[in-house]
Simulated assay, not measured.
Amino acid sequence: MVPFAGYSMPLSYGDVGQVASHNHVRKSVGIFDVGHMVQSNFRGKTAVNFLEWLTPSSLSSLKPYASTLSVLLNEKGGIIDDTIVTKHASDAFYVVTNAGRRERDLAWFKEKLAEWNASETGKNGPVEHEVLENWGLLALQGPEAASYLQGLTSFDLSQLTFGNSAFVPIEGFNLHVARGGYTGEDGFEISIPPSQTLEVARLLTKSPVQLIGLGARDSLRLEAGMCLYGNDMDETTTPVEAGLSWVIGKERKEAGGFIGAEAVQQQLKDGPSRRRIGLVVEGAPARQGAKIFSPNKDELGIVTSGIPSPTLGKNIAMGYVKSGWHKKGTEVQVEVRKQLRKGVLTPMPFIKPNYWRG
């Protein structure tokens, strides 16, 4: 167990090592306890307008029970947090944010809600925010996740495609199940009321399902090219720099209307000064903080996450470099343990994702 975001979290379970856990998720099915994440509901006549002010995504065009990755931005276009927003109805949204940003996010929601509800728009349709305190969240991930879960429900899971959710009957429980996750594999994130979490967890951890800790979660998400807040982005990073321009709705790139829009639109027009990149590093793994140099020893940027990839048998890393140096195939040097090692810019994700798209 390790301290993480105010919680005590499992790095690994029993004597199963990180690499074995990682490989089990890639080949079979594993389950993660991600109940530390903050689950929220936003409701009200103008909920969609409020959330489109807080994020740059096009939420009004989402179909019911569809989700999108998004970002909460500060006034300078910096990322306060990354989030998954699910539209339940035009006036109801389910939002999941990071545990490590809990205090910052909740204070931001409170401040912006007060501002919104005091405005003319808000007065005509006030928005309320409910935090689902102590709710469970379990992520069932891997190529065998669907067949395992299908054995527990009459709901046809083949109809539930990546990025969508539904209320699904699971052995007498009616649970919110979202198809997606943080591993690059097919899988489901299952939200559970506090009184039912333990029972549902027991249902979901029979063979071949293995409990998977934080260690493997980190290596799985990095292979899938996914950012970890606090490592790969923070309030000084914009979505354009982070390679997340795709979360900004097409029409919103023009129209703006969201917090931080001016800075984001400027970068979309002129290009950012730095960009998030993937790297394969020779010799030894480059860890967070390792400097990236040009072949002429000019400093280009920094590694934000790095591991030996269990799936690929190579050292992979994510980081930021000056614009112009971000093209795939570009050769750089990375400082690892005071030695410069060759790095090659490699497109992310490093592995081919196996999302279920129907």
Score class of each variant (00 low, 15 high):
residue 13 Y to E: 07
residue 13 Y to W: 11
residue 23 N to S: 12
residue 24 H to D: 01
residue 28 S to D: 12
residue 32 F to I: 12
residue 35 G to F: 00
residue 41 N to H: 13
residue 46 T to W: 05
residue 52 E to D: 04
residue 54 L to R: 06
residue 54 L to E: 03
residue 60 S to D: 11
residue 62 L to P: 03
residue 63 K to L: 11
residue 65 Y to P: 03
residue 72 L to W: 12
residue 73 L to E: 00
residue 75 E to S: 12
residue 76 K to M: 15
residue 83 T to R: 06
residue 87 K to V: 10
residue 89 A to G: 15
residue 92 A to D: 11
residue 93 F to R: 05
residue 96 V to G: 06
residue 99 A to R: 07
residue 104 R to E: 12
residue 112 K to I: 04
residue 117 N to K: 13
residue 121 T to G: 01
residue 125 G to T: 06
residue 131 V to M: 02
residue 135 W to G: 00
residue 146 A to I: 11
residue 155 F to D: 00
residue 158 S to C: 08
residue 164 N to A: 04
residue 169 P to N: 05
residue 175 L to Q: 10
residue 175 L to T: 07
residue 181 G to R: 14
residue 182 Y to A: 05
residue 183 T to D: 04
residue 184 G to W: 02
residue 184 G to N: 02
residue 186 D to K: 10
residue 195 S to C: 07
residue 196 Q to V: 06
residue 199 E to Q: 13
residue 202 R to C: 06
residue 202 R to Q: 15
residue 206 K to L: 09
residue 209 V to D: 04
residue 210 Q to K: 13
residue 211 L to T: 08
residue 212 I to K: 04
residue 218 D to V: 15
residue 229 Y to P: 09
residue 231 N to D: 14
residue 235 E to H: 11
residue 238 T to I: 01
residue 241 E to L: 01
residue 242 A to S: 02
residue 246 W to D: 13
residue 249 G to C: 02
residue 249 G to W: 07
residue 251 E to L: 14
residue 253 K to R: 13
residue 257 G to P: 04
residue 259 I to E: 07
residue 263 A to R: 08
residue 267 Q to C: 00
residue 269 K to H: 02
residue 279 L to R: 00
residue 284 A to W: 01
residue 310 P to L: 01
residue 311 T to F: 12
residue 317 A to L: 09
residue 321 V to A: 01
residue 327 K to H: 08
residue 330 T to K: 01
residue 339 Q to V: 10
residue 343 G to A: 04
residue 345 L to K: 00
